[in-house]
């Protein structure tokens, strides 16, 4: 007897199960998520990236950054990502709602970048440029294994061009960031998973300290961000 048709039906039925579970159900549930709105502050999360940062997604993808950098923060019970200062809360599927493609990565040969925008702040554009030109020139990165992305910059004799980056170890030269470099840095700065989502609310501070100095370091930003709703809450 030819049993091939029966095997075929069996295989089809078996594999359909996981296809429906992982492909169809994922799209039906996660694919239809909409942005969250905080009922108290009215803040919407996640926010779509502005044009330059959206272009930077493509640069990040094309350079293969995801081969070494993850963009996913584990919960405190699962690992010490938060203790290392890589995030304020764990990341969930909703954080990547507007990303196309979501660049999660799965190996950490470099630090997690899910909140690099919070760590660096908008003032640190030059520091990020320097890091891309030569990761070993940055303080604490003397032994970095990250590749050099000098080719995203144009190296010239120093002439005081506005926006040029000057490396301390290469006097007399300046680096002009290309469009790709500008987009990439705009994208990195836009990486912040610090909004309120239903599955992973932001941790509330023990004592609201509205007088925390405004700084670029992440714990300060976190306190400010999280403290705002607490202090603005309507009195009972």
């Amino acid at each position: 007897m030819n049993i091939a048709p029966f095997i075929f039906i069996g295989l089809f039925a078996t594999f359909s199960a996981s296809w429906f579970g992982f492909v169809f159900r994922s799209q039906a549930e996660i694919g239809r998520e909409t942005q969250y709105m905080n009922p108290i502050t009215g803040a919407v999360y996640p926010v779509a990236r502005e044009g330059r940062a959206q272009q930077g997604t493509e640069v990040y993808r094309a350079q293969g950054c995801a081969a070494c950098h993850t963009q996913q923060v584990r919960a405190l019970s699962e690992g010490n990502d938060i203790v290392r200062g890589w995030g304020i809360r764990r990341t969930v599927a909703a954080d990547y709602m507007l990303d196309r493609p979501a660049l999660l990565g799965n190996v950490r040969l470099g630090p997690d970048l899910a909140n690099i925008g919070l760590r660096k702040g908008t003032n640190d554009v030059v520091a990020l440029y320097k890091h891309l030109i030569n990761p070993r020139s940055v303080r604490g990165g003397e032994k970095s294994i990250m590749p050099l992305y000098k080719y995203l910059f144009e190296k010239r004799r120093a002439s005081g061009t506005p926006g040029a980056v000057i490396m301390e170890n290469e006097p007399g030269f300046e680096y002009i960031p290309s469009d790709d470099a500008k987009s990439l840095v705009a994208y990195l700065i836009s990486l912040k998973s610090n909004g309120d989502v239903f599955e992973a609310p932001m941790p509330q501070p023990k004592a609201p300290s509205t007088n925390a100095p405004a700084g670029t370091n992440m714990t300060a930003t976190a306190t400010n961000a999280a403290a705002a709703p607490t202090t603005n809450a309507p009195a009972k």
Partner: peptide, 19 residues
């Protein structure tokens, strides 16, 4: 049909890719 599709967004694509 999914990984490069403009309809599939967010972490659906990584889940499908992993599967």
């Amino acid at each position: 049909m999914t990984l490069w599709s403009p309809v599939v967004r967010g972490s659906v694509a990584p889940i499908v890719a992993l599967w």
